Simulated assay, not measured.
Amino acid sequence: MENKVLVIVHVEPDFGSSAEDLVPFILRHIENNNYRRIINITSADALTGTEPFLEMAGIGDDLEWIWGGEPDCIPEDGKEFDNFILAGGHEYAEILDWMRELPKDCNYDICGGGRYECLKDITDIWSHLNLEYSVIENLTY
């Protein structure tokens, strides 16, 4: 099996029809590719308690991450602080422990959204952690 990991970012009901429209295409992509692991990044449990799309339930490891946020104390150089980095989607993105534990020998395919918000924060985090990734453009919203 290849060292490929699929990372699905915020394809859940709280992100509306744009996220819902991707579900069948993501499921077809999974069927047609041999992934070592699938990571489904969600935020509904922490925010609203919304259940995932029924079709997405149980297809991978559901890992919680909420975009943005602002650290309690911003250092004078404004570069990096604790588990936060300056990011392109939201002003700050939090790097969680599970992200730091991801294997560096994998190739990460990232999809979902929002393309210029949460997904952008995730790619900024992956870059910061020196993880090799590519964005599957036709599977983003």
Rank of each mutant, 00 (worst) to 15 (best):
W126P: 06
L139T: 08
C111T: 09
I136W: 05
I95P: 07
C118N: 13
I59K: 01
N130Y: 06
C73N: 15
E55D: 14
L86E: 10
I85F: 00
H90I: 01
Y108C: 06
E101C: 10
L129E: 06
K120I: 05
I110C: 09
P71Y: 04
A87R: 01
N130W: 00
G78V: 00
W65N: 15
W65T: 02
L102S: 14
A46H: 09
G68A: 08
D82N: 15
E51N: 06
D105L: 02
A87K: 02
Y92P: 15
L54C: 09
K120T: 07
D109V: 11
P103K: 02
E55F: 05
R115C: 07
Y133P: 04
R100H: 13
T48I: 10
E117N: 10
D105T: 11
H128Y: 10
E101P: 05
I136E: 04
G113E: 01
T50G: 07
F53V: 06
W98I: 03
E70F: 08
G49D: 06
T48W: 09
I110V: 14
P75V: 08
Y133F: 15
Y108T: 06
G88S: 13
L131S: 14
E91S: 12
L86I: 08
L139A: 07
E70I: 12
E101F: 06
A46Y: 06
R100E: 15
G60H: 02
M99F: 04
P71R: 05
R115Y: 11
L63Q: 14
L86W: 00
F53N: 04
L131C: 11
W126V: 10
P103F: 00
A57Q: 12
A46E: 12
C118T: 13
L54G: 00
D77I: 05
G114S: 11
L63S: 10
I66A: 11
N83L: 08
P71Q: 10
F84I: 08
L86M: 09
S127Y: 07
R115H: 08
E76G: 03
G88V: 03
P71I: 11
L47K: 14
D109C: 10
A93T: 03
G78L: 02
H128D: 11
D105S: 10
N107R: 04
H128S: 10
W126F: 15
E137R: 03
P52H: 05
D61E: 15
H128N: 11
E132A: 14
D61C: 08
I125Q: 01
N83I: 11
H128V: 06
A87D: 00
L139C: 08
D124T: 03
